[in-house]
């Protein structure tokens, strides 16, 4: 089967999966206690019957559940994610507004964790049993075990409050009016702490996994053969060991990539990063149904997309997978 045929089949399945996810999310969310009209009315500090009825009517909550579900799902089928009555804007616009910030943050964290994780893992495996190896694995364990939330606050405390090196939160300097290069530098500075905090955990995971996998593969017969052929250590490590050892890392990276949209709620909250994770969290608190469903759906689509990408990457890294399929 050609790669294109596989992709086509996967996409067809993906569409069905997404539809199921939309229905399931809708049902789950409506089963949760609380209703957006009461929340909105409640925030006003006063509410009467008339106000709540007005709001429910406006939100379409006065209609039977089946009708609401049908309206939503048929909307989704036409790529219409609905309207956020709370925020007075189409959901797709809200998500599009927040998407760049999130992708920048999670993308940076993804690259940092993957590159550093693999590099450190290879380095640790090459020096297995030596002090450098112990040092690296200890740090990895530390990062792995540290709660993200705490690490984030400590990073702010140290680098922003005490040392004053980096801005502690936000996406850019508010009201500075930077443009062009100055703006890029400004955003990059704001990006450092949240991206590192978010990246640390996965970096530790990649490192441990690369190290273990490298060590396992390095005892394989074909490595002995390569060594017997007189290849240099560096070439063996790069072409023979790493290439075979990288598969589990790719699997995991696929999983992390799937979380690029929804996986940064805590980091975005602590660093006041104006991304999707926060939009989802705040919408959940307000029971802003359409917005939450929209974010869920986009995240789900992302997970599915990256699963497909991961599959393709497998084939590139290890041609045997394609040959067997």
């Amino acid at each position: 089967m050609s790669v294109f045929a596989i992709i086509a089949a996967r996409l067809a399945k993906a569409a069905l999966t997404l539809l199921c996810i939309a229905v399931l999310n809708f049902c789950l969310l409506h089963a949760a206690p609380g209703d957006p009209a009461v929340v909105l009315a409640g925030e006003a500090g006063a509410a009467d019957e008339q106000m709540i009825e007005q709001l429910r009517e406006r939100f379409g909550l006065d209609q039977p559940f089946g009708v609401q579900l049908w309206k939503y799902v048929s909307g989704v089928a036409q790529l219409d994610l609905g309207y956020s009555f709370r925020q007075g804007a189409p959901v797709i616009e809200l998500i599009a507004d927040r998407l760049p910030a999130t992708l920048l943050l999670t993308g940076a964290a993804f690259v940092i964790s993957l590159v550093c994780g693999i590099a450190l893992g290879v380095a640790a495996a090459a020096r297995v049993g030596k002090p450098q190896d112990s040092l690296l694995t200890t740090f990895a364990l530390l990062f792995y075990a540290t709660p993200l939330y705490w690490a984030a606050l400590m990073a702010v405390l140290v680098f922003s409050v005490w040392l004053g090196w980096l801005p502690g939160f936000g996406y850019e300097t508010v009201g500075a009016g930077y443009t062009g290069m100055a703006r890029i530098i400004d955003i990059a500075q704001h990006l450092v702490l949240p991206a590192l905090t978010l990246g640390l955990f996965f970096m530790a995971v990649y490192m441990r996994m690369t190290r273990a996998s490298m060590l396992e593969v390095s005892t394989a017969d074909f490595v002995k053969t390569a060594r017997a052929k007189g290849l240099s250590d560096a070439v063996i490590r790069r072409r023979h060991i790493l290439r075979n050892a990288i598969l589990p890392v790719v699997t995991l990276a696929g999983l992390q990539a799937g979380q690029l949209i929804g996986g940064a709620v805590l980091t975005e909250t602590v660093f006041a990063w104006p991304g999707i994770g926060r939009l989802m969290f705040e919408s959940l608190a307000a029971r802003d149904y359409n917005t939450i469903l929209g974010v869920f759906l986009v995240s789900a689509a992302m997970v599915i997309a990256f699963n497909i990408v991961t599959d393709i990457v497998y084939r590139l890294v290890d041609p045997r997978i394609g040959a067997r399929a």
Binding site: L153, V156, L157, S160, V161, G164, P167, G168, F169, G170, V174, G175, E268, T269, V270, F271, A272, P274, R278, E282
Partner: peptide
């Protein structure tokens, strides 16, 4: 400027750093 900072501890830090 009304600044949106969702975490209580970060708000304290924002005030502390003069933000």
């Amino acid at each position: 400027y009304y600044r949106v900072i969702p975490d209580a501890a970060s708000r304290a830090v924002a005030f502390e750093t003069g933000e």
